[in-house]
């Protein structure tokens, strides 16, 4: 990003902030609880819990291309939240904003009540956020076990000299991270490939190892960028089971981006739909399925206007 627009973004974001807080935050919280009360009468615990993650008026553009425009999103603790949309709708941009890889031009990301203009990427793990990548981002030269154990690297406090000589707290740390990595491998049914180099595994397994690496730190918020892309149908449903099991076991909140609408409908508690960088729907799977704008933009049925009149 060129420097001038970067600084401009800062000014705009800070100038924008009071307005967002005055207008966006209280009212969105209010409407959140209102709608929750309406659509989910049983979810009373979730309804009173404040959001773990919330996006307020996020705008992001690359040159003249608007990737995200005024996107609000609120994720409650413990829910599985899907973000769907056609190609180029801004889904990956949104995940990159949440994880601090991109700095939004305007708007704020609130993590656990703390507001960020840009989420500090290097502090992400300490904030309890883990993510996976759309294109595999495993460390190919490390074994599966070491890949997963590296998910705990942010906690390591021993220095290299202690590790080389095996003194101080390094031994305990090493034992602890390997045993926790082993537990996660067992949980995701990866023990059989524990000592293989990650780069030699088939694609579907690599995706699962990435999930394991993200889970080993027991994050409060887990961001999954197309966790099922390129998988076969059976691999997808297997992955869906793992995602749900991970949420249940580690009490993790999950935000996931996915193309396969069928899998998402069965897996998610709520779904946000993006189209051309705007959020066009945000509701339960059933409501999204029947939302006319979502059908038009994404799910697709025969068009009413087959002649193309007016185009």
């Amino acid at each position: 990003m060129p420097l001038p627009s970067y600084t401009l973004g800062v000014i705009e974001a800070s100038a924008y902030a009071p307005e967002v807080f005055a207008r966006g935050l209280p009212s969105s919280l209010w409407s959140e609880q209102q709608s929750e009360g309406r659509v989910e009468p049983t979810g009373s615990v979730a309804a009173v819990a404040s959001p773990l993650l919330s996006l307020q008026g996020i705008g992001l553009s690359f040159g003249g291309v608007v990737a995200l425009a005024d996107v609000d999103l609120s994720v409650r603790p413990g829910e599985i939240r899907a973000i769907i949309g056609p190609n180029g709708a801004g889904k990956s941009s949104l995940i990159n904003v949440i994880s601090g890889v991109y700095r939004p031009d305007r708007g704020h990301v609130l993590l656990d009540g703390v507001s960020y203009a840009q989420v500090p990427t290097q502090r992400l793990a300490h904030l309890g956020v883990a993510r996976t990548f759309q294109n595999l981002a495993l460390f190919k030269g490390l074994s599966v076990l070491d890949n997963v154990a590296s998910g705990l690297a942010y906690k390591v406090r021993s220095n290299f000299a202690g590790q080389v000589l095996g003194i101080g707290r390094s031994r305990g740390e090493q034992r602890d991270s390997l045993s926790r990595a082993d537990q996660v491998l067992e949980f995701l049914d990866l023990t059989a490939v524990r000592d293989r180099l990650a780069g030699t595994l088939p694609y579907g397994l690599q995706k699962r190892v990435e999930l394991a690496r993200a889970l080993v730190a027991q994050p409060r918020l887990l961001l999954l960028d197309e966790p099922m892309a390129g998988m076969t149908a059976s691999e997808k449903s297997e992955m869906a089971v793992f995602v749900r099991a991970a949420r249940d076991r580690f009490a993790t909140t999950v935000v996931l981006i996915e193309h396969d609408v069928g899998v998402v409908m069965g897996l998610s508690d709520r779904i946000a739909v993006l189209d051309y960088g705007r959020k066009i729907a945000d509701a339960t799977p059933d409501e999204v399925r029947n939302d006319q704008r979502v059908i038009d933009a994404y799910l697709g049925v025969a068009s009413d206007n087959e002649d193309g009149a007016g185009i």
Binding site: A137, F139, G141, L142, D146, A149, S150, Y154, R213
Partner: peptide, 18 residues
């Protein structure tokens, strides 16, 4: 392991907190 992680994927290494 951190060395290899940075060699193989610097962005991922940064995100997991190395």
């Amino acid at each position: 392991r951190n060395f290899i992680a940075i060699r193989d994927n610097e962005t991922a290494a940064r995100i997991i907190g190395i």
